[in-house]
Design a binder for these strands. Structure first.
Lengths: 265, 265
DNA sequence: ACAATAGTGTCTGTCAGACATTATATG
DNA sequence: CATATAATGTCTGACAGACACTATTGT
């Protein structure tokens, strides 16, 4: 009740002399902030299974354990948290992806033995056929906290959920996977896992792998075609029997949120 | 390919001597982490409008500007990020709420003049009739970064979205509001804004205030009653005309996700 | 009795599920 | 031409929207 909206000018333009003095004297190093990292659950379909990229930690803590790739914000290179996540993705896979999003942020006093720590968890979906094998000695895989090599390994998510991962990474993986599964029920998100061209049957199989249930062919095609999420390339894929029309992702970047979820039961 | 799942024991149990040595020598103070805060968009229905709690900043930077309440993780008191958010809520309103959730985390080099900063944005829904006016001199409103009083002010969200808020708080408010509006379309989330007892007409009005559209009475009642989200208290509210049955929230803590969204158009 | 609000009956439209049917390749 | 897979036709069921209708109170 004491501040009128009109009485203040837009922040941060200008800045009073007092504010400038404050900022000149301010030194972040005087304050202890939680250890903050960005962790990635990078998914791809490999050998007809949903797999997640893990790294073997080459440094303490949890040295030798498998972990989700991640690292610290590089203040000189990353303009935003999404940029940090994107950088991590490219470092590990050599490719970029439109299908990169924040899942949630987990922070607690006990999740890392170094002290109160926070991780901003993201997931990324990639087309496994586009992966560029990363040289382990690649300088870009070094981070401010890690100057050694990290061995990359893909593992089926069902195995990874049973493995002893570093820190709370099994829980983080479960959260990322939960988000992916949920969004698969009401969006066209799994398009992010497909190669440039694919058949609708192949796309349906990917949905089925993620959800762990069989889907109705007719409903599935109707949804995606009516929404304009995919478009025919004009070519066909010849197999042993009737050839299948090839499709590509249409209107990439669109979200394709469907009005009802699949398998609501 | 080089690490067998079986070859590692569960983390963090045990911990090798080398790991213990590493942790003994490790000092977080040597690393510069982004400035990390938890910010809150606390919503309530006041005067038939959706309002948000703002504070007038009493310290630099952005001194004098209105801002979403927030602050640093208190490593000695907060076990998790949710605990930090909950503590902030209680400090500002004097009450607790089951309807407190993380929205997203925003981080960039430019959002705070002190340097690379991150905020973990949450929203909370409260029953305005339960608010305990907080003494401005309440010691618990002091944080490690702020030892002065903060003036609390409720403002209709539509006004707040046009006001000059500190930092990027107008954007944060828009994000929290977007989440609230979206979830209002397919969950029973606005129950968090209701008093202990209410009529279905009152509840419908709250939904309408949030969404900014009129809803169909029959559909609205059918949804909530069929889902078991509310239950009759057995009492009625006498007004000028036909009395209305009073309801309370049923199965609090349940999420009540509906199979279809409202006003999908 | 009338005005105003609470509450119900019931029809329609949309879209996912089920499943039968037709289409088109290859061997 | 037999068979496997691709692709379509069409009926059903669940549930939101529309809106007319009935119910119950105070004045």
């Amino acid at each position: 009740m004491s501040v009128s909206t009109k009485s203040v000018s837009a922040y941060p333009m200008g800045g009073s002399r007092a504010e400038r003095d404050f900022l000149k004297r301010y030194d972040r190093r005087e304050f202890l902030a939680p250890l903050t990292t960005v962790d990635m659950a990078i998914f791809a379909i490999i050998d007809q299974a949903l797999q997640v990229l893990l790294v073997e930690r080459s440094n303490f803590p949890a040295k030798g354990f498998l972990a989700l790739p991640g690292g610290f914000v590089d203040e000189t290179r990353d303009a935003t948290l999404l940029a940090t996540a994107h950088r991590k993705l490219v470092e590990k896979t050599g490719i970029s992806s439109q299908f990169l999003e924040q899942v949630e942020t987990v922070g607690s006093a006990v999740r890392d033995p170094r002290g109160w720590s926070i991780t901003v968890l993201h997931f990324a979906l990639i087309d496994s056929s586009a992966i560029v094998p990363q040289d382990s000695s690649n300088a870009s895989s070094k981070t401010s906290s890690n100057t050694s090599f990290e061995v990359i390994r893909w593992m089926p998510v069902n195995d990874a959920l049973l493995a002893d991962l570093a820190f709370d990474h099994r829980d983080l993986l479960a959260r990322a996977l939960g988000r992916l599964r949920n969004k698969t029920r009401y969006t066209a998100l799994p398009l992010g896992l497909m190669p440039d061209e694919f058949t609708l049957t192949e796309l349906q199989h990917v949905f089925e792998i993620i959800l762990g249930v069989k889907l109705e062919k007719k409903s599935f095609r109707r949804r995606l075609l009516d929404a304009g999420a995919v478009e025919e390339t004009g070519t066909v894929q010849h197999g042993v029997h009737r050839p299948a029309a090839m499709y590509r992702v249409a209107n990439i970047g669109n979200d394709f949120v469907f009005p009802r979820a699949l398998e609501s039961t």
